[in-house]
Nucleic acid binder design. Sequence first.
DNA 1: CATGCGCTCCGAACAGTGTTCGTTACGAAC
DNA 2: GTTCGTAACGAACACTGTTCGGAGCGCATG
Lengths: 249, 249
Amino acid sequence: MSNPPGAPRRSAPAAPVSRRTRPAKAALSADALVSAALAILDADGLDAVTMRRVAQALDTGAASLYVYVANRDELLALVYDRVVGEIPLPDVGPVGAPVPHWRARLTTLIGDAVTVLGGRRGIASVALGDVPTGPNALALAETILGLLSGAGIDDLTRSFALDLINLYITAAATEQSAYVAKGEQGRTEESEVAAMNETFARLSATEYPHLVAMRPTLTEGSGDERDAWTIEVLLNGILTTPPHPPRTP
Amino acid sequence: MSNPPGAPRRSAPAAPVSRRTRPAKAALSADALVSAALAILDADGLDAVTMRRVAQALDTGAASLYVYVANRDELLALVYDRVVGEIPLPDVGPVGAPVPHWRARLTTLIGDAVTVLGGRRGIASVALGDVPTGPNALALAETILGLLSGAGIDDLTRSFALDLINLYITAAATEQSAYVAKGEQGRTEESEVAAMNETFARLSATEYPHLVAMRPTLTEGSGDERDAWTIEVLLNGILTTPPHPPRTP
DNA sequence: CATGCGCTCCGAACAGTGTTCGTTACGAAC
DNA sequence: GTTCGTAACGAACACTGTTCGGAGCGCATG
């Protein structure tokens, strides 16, 4: 009983002893959990990131994970922040200084954020509920604020704009990764578009005249074109809309 | 044991006739499932809408639901469309005709949509993945297109704008209902704001200068003010942004 | 009238899920 | 050499969505 050779388990550098006879294994840590979870996320999507599966990847039991993480949501929040850390951030100069090309840089940043978060199979959806406060998410917010300061808009507008940009990034990434997930289930983008076209073809022209008339247009334009236009819309809108639109002080 | 007076269930244990001794019970139907699910949604949130719980509310077994609905996702899609049906739609005139006050009406419509969907404890999140094609969702899209046609913008822009508005409605409603859910768990809005303030208070001013400097501003403005500003931003942006921004044809 | 067919109904079971309990074993302090 | 905090889990709990197969009803056909 003291030294069965098969199935080495955790933490027993000294080989002879006892139940944990793992020979050499990285110690568990929150970071290790996040890495394991991220690998599973990339391989099989958000739903596959279960406590048991993460534990299995680390060659341990699910109960062990709760030493490093309060629950699954907390683990996912950590994974989210790790992914946010992969978004390339431009460096913005010191606080008061003018920021050259702030608009082009902000446009790129928003696009990159959507691409990075949208590529990771549903992780963006964990940020829709609660405002993320991980270090990387904060750094992203800081950078957005820095770029916005280059536009010379007031603080309140910047605060509102930050929220709006975050909302857009999260929502667009969520939508995009849902698309990707469907694609991996065999449905290609063309078949998806075709199915949508069929749905609209069946519509009564008297009940939905606009939708029917616009059927060809509704599927026009690539996803990238739509995204680029949307970001332009947000920035143009932000630049031309003062807070408190009804009453002017 | 053969005939306890209380709690008549389906499938009489000992009543004279056969197994189904339902005395007087509305026949099952997809609509009945949706109503039951909606009641549970309002009472206990999206996670509480389980097949067993819906079945229990209808005094039947979970397996019976699958006669009317392919799976839980389909049921939730039906619930979603029912809720969308509660959004008051302005009536837009005939197709070619000018639409008076289109902007004010569109503003109201978007706000109403967010309010209705956001009030329903997480149901908005089911629409983030797939484009909803229920009759009420189509009617909403049709109305939005009708109002947008009042602005005299081209078809492609209208198509992009429809997507953007839908994205905003869904994301904003999801976020709002997440807030509401937290509120019901004892956390008030003030305590939430206070917690956020504390988080920001702890931040290093050298690492996050903008965030620290803007701390008072970040929690300023009511939710309604922010929402109203955001809708203005979207409309202003839509009106001033042509498709294909880089190259001009 | 009898027979059979199709449909609804639903108990039981399957393969999972997140999380908790209680026990075990280890490394370090005393 | 003994104690002790804590990491590590095996097992269990209370659930989940979904499937299977049998049971029973009503209706059209023979």
